[in-house]
Each structure stands twice: as structure tokens, then as C-alpha cells.
């Protein structure tokens, strides 16, 4: 399954992004391969959000290059990124609690049948697909007609991910999918991320929780103050080293001394 010899699905080279006089990113390089979870770690303000929004086509990079399947691209909007197979699951999930799982799953991309005045959504098909997809990820949906509001946070996250996968994503950007979840819910989401990886997708997993990253990640890139602090492969680095890199190493060591080694 290791595909480092193949062309990466997405390659971001020396991406820079300036907002006026603020330099949010100053040369970030990340590659995403098929069948791999690439963890993007960094503290608040490190530039994670700016970076994934650049990757998702929300922002245009000020400098640097973006390649998809080895070919340079320039997105003019999120739609372009989506068409190129890069799907983003944001923290707020774009799910509507009052609507059913099926209606959420197909929102904005409803399959229709029939000739115009009688054209309608093929809800039988939608229900069937939703039921199958939910079964695949092991969510206890009593029926696809139940409202998303009845699902737990982890289940909602999984539905959002499976929606992106179903609609043909090749690269999945997950924006802190586990940050608001409890232990069981987190393990459920991590397990599903592993399943998605095994299906051959490339996953960009943004988190600031090193343990979650270590659980599923193949490679780890740490961002700090808009720069890449380096990319490590699984096995080359320990959780402690990652944690130190994220916090800027020295500062954390000092703090650790002050607090008597509790951080």
C-alpha cells in the first residue's frame, strides 16, 4: 500500500499566503499520497486553517505551487477543488439537524428522475444509498428518515465524511474532526478514517491532539508560525517529540520545568 514511489495525489510546494501585511503562511510544503493519512499538527494560529483553505480553493496562494497528480493547478474557488476531488469536512460539518440523514447526505446534489414538470428526487435510491453507507461505517441509524439532530457528534462526523467519500473525493481534508468528541466517539471517527484510507483515499487530518494523530497517521507535518517544521514518517518520531515541535520545543521544555514536569 505504500505509494511513496508514485506521484502524490496532491503536492503543495512552498505555499505562501499573505493577508495584507500579515504573513499567514511562509513556505509550507506538504504532499498527500493515496492510501495515506497525513497529519497536519500545529497550535492555534500556526496557519493550519489558512493552509487547508488554500488547499480547498477558498484562498488563492500568494506564492508557491500546487500540483494535482503531478500537474500544476490554480483553483479559483471551492467548486474547482471539489471537481478535482478535494473535499473538505469542516468543523461545522455543513449538516442540518432538523433534516433527515438522507436529505442531509444528498443536500445540494440530489439525484432526480422524471421529465421536467414531474421531475423529482429519487428518494428510494437516496434512502437505499444512505442506508448502505451508514451500514458500511457501522452507524446505528434506525432509519435514514431520522433527523441528523438525533445522531451523536461522532456519528455526524462520520456521516459528513462518508458523504464526501460517496461523492467521489480522492483527497479528504478533515478539519479537527475529533476536537469536540469524547473518547468513544473519537475512536469511532479514527476507525472510520482508517477505513477511508484503506479504500485508497488520501486524507489530510488536521488536529492539535498528538495522540489522535499518532493513532492513524502515516506521516506528520508540524506547522508553526506559518512554516513547516518538518515532515516525519510513522516510526521515526515519538509523540513526545511531536508535542515539543508543536509547542516550539524550548518554550515547552522551560514550562515543563516550571510546572515540575506535568506538561
Amino acid at each position: 500500500m505504500a505509494s511513496s514511489s508514485h506521484t502524490p495525489l496532491v503536492e503543495m510546494r512552498d505555499i505562501e499566503k499573505h493577508f495584507g501585511s500579515v504573513i499567514a503562511l511562509s513556505g509550507v510544503s506538504v504532499t498527500v499520497n493515496a492510501g495515506e493519512v497525513h497529519c497536519l499538527l500545529g497550535d492555534n494560529g500556526a496557519g493550519k486553517s489558512t493552509f487547508i483553505k488554500t488547499m480547498a480553493g477558498v484562498f488563492r496562494p500568494t506564492g508557491g505551487q500546487m500540483l494535482i497528480d503531478g500537474k500544476p493547478v490554480a483553483f479559483s474557488g471551492p467548486r474547482d477543488a471539489l471537481d478535482a476531488g478535494i473535499a473538505t469536512v469542516y468543523q461545522d460539518l455543513a449538516m442540518i439537524p432538523l433534516m433527515s440523514v438522507t436529505r442531509n447526505f444528498f443536500m445540494g446534489r440530489e439525484p432526480v428522475k422524471g421529465i421536467w414538470p414531474f421531475r423529482h428526487v429519487d428518494f428510494d435510491f437516496c434512502d437505499r444509498v444512505t442506508r448502505e453507507e451508514m451500514k458500511r461505517i457501522g452507524i446505528d441509524v434506525r432509519d435514514p428518515g431520522q433527523a441528523v439532530g438525533t445522531l451523536s457528534g461522532g456519528e455526524r462526523q462520520c456521516v459528513a465524511i462518508s458523504r464526501a467519500v460517496y461523492f467521489g473525493a480522492k483527497v479528504l481534508i478533515l478539519d479537527e474532526p475529533t476536537s469536540a468528541l469524547g473518547v468513544r466517539q473519537t475512536s469511532m471517527v479514527l476507525k472510520y478514517i482508517d477505513m477511508v484510507r484503506k479504500r485508497g483515499l488520501g486524507v489530510v487530518f488536521i488536529t492539535h491532539n498528538v495522540r489522535h494523530a499518532m493513532a492513524v497517521g502515516n506521516r506528520f507535518t508540524v506547522l508553526n508560525r506559518g512554516k513547516t517544521l518538518g515532515t516525519a514518517t510513522r516510526g521515526e518520531i515519538t509523540a513526545e517529540e511531536l508535542q515539543n515541535m508543536m509547542a516550539g520545543g524550548r518554550e515547552l521544555a522551560e514550562l515543563s520545568d516550571e510546572l515540575g514536569g506535568t506538561v
Binding site: 442540518i96 432538523l98 433534516m99 436529505r103 444528498f106 443536500m107 445540494g108 440530489e110 432526480v112 421531475r119 423529482h120 428526487v121
Partner: peptide
């Protein structure tokens, strides 16, 4: 219909 789903959304 699709439009109906969009109204709910």
C-alpha cells in the same frame, strides 16, 4: 423535489 429539499436546507 430538489427545490423542496433546498427550501428545508
Amino acid at each position: 423535489t430538489r427545490y423542496g429539499n433546498w427550501i428545508f436546507a
